[in-house]
């Protein structure tokens, strides 16, 4: 089986690699690029721990081959902060106790990042639906919702009225 050359942008940097076509995007990130923020939780595209941004959309990187992402633009949790300055979502998760074991957190952050990019003022229901592809076993989601609202305030968005 032939290896395939791929070229993509990851967190703003161009990356070239030669990979087996069966290599999943999550393994390219974790094992070849050392970006271990995204995790593997279920392997069947249900838990969302592997969520990254691909071409401006949230995707589950355990169910995307790296070759499929070739030519695309990937953003991971490692690219979320602006240098030393945390993204308001990162600050919000810490401030509102939106994480416990931390395993789902990178996926949650990347998902909620895209959620707020697409809809800056989601209602609580919209936040819950928005993160429904991400499973958290620790928090019961309540503080994750609060964390997103915290970030909305930080980002200067008007909080949606309930």
């Amino acid at each position: 089986m032939a290896k395939t050359d791929i070229k993509l942008t990851i967190n703003g940097e161009e990356v070239e690699a030669t990979v087996e076509p069966r290599m999943l995007l999550i393994y390219l990130l974790r094992e070849h690029l050392g970006l271990t923020g995204a995790h593997i939780g279920c392997e069947t595209s249900h838990c969302g721990a592997c969520t990254v941004d691909l071409d401006g959309k949230s995707v589950k990187s355990c169910t995307v081959f790296a070759v499929q992402a070739s030519g695309g633009e990937v953003m991971t949790v490692e690219g979320l902060a602006n240098g030393a300055e945390l993204h308001p979502l990162q600050a919000g998760f810490a401030e509102e106790h939106g994480l416990q074991c931390g395993f789902c957190t990178p996926g949650m952050l990347m998902r909620t990042y895209r959620l707020l990019e697409d809809n800056p003022n989601p209602s609580e229901d919209e936040i819950r639906v928005g993160i429904s592809g991400n499973i958290c076993r620790c928090t019961g989601y309540q503080n994750i919702v609060k964390a997103v609202r915290h970030a909305m305030r930080e980002l200067g968005h008007k909080e949606a009225t309930e």
């Binding site: 974790r30 094992e31 050392g34 970006l35 271990t36 923020g37 995204a38 995790h39 593997i40 991971t76 949790v77 490692e78 979320l80 902060a81 945390l86 990162q90 998760f93 810490a94 994480l99 931390g102 395993f103 957190t105 990178p106 952050l109």
Partner: peptide
Amino acid sequence: DARFIQGKGNYVDDIK
């Protein structure tokens, strides 16, 4: 939290 929110947690499969 500082490490977890930046993708810098160190779980067993992260160890290389």
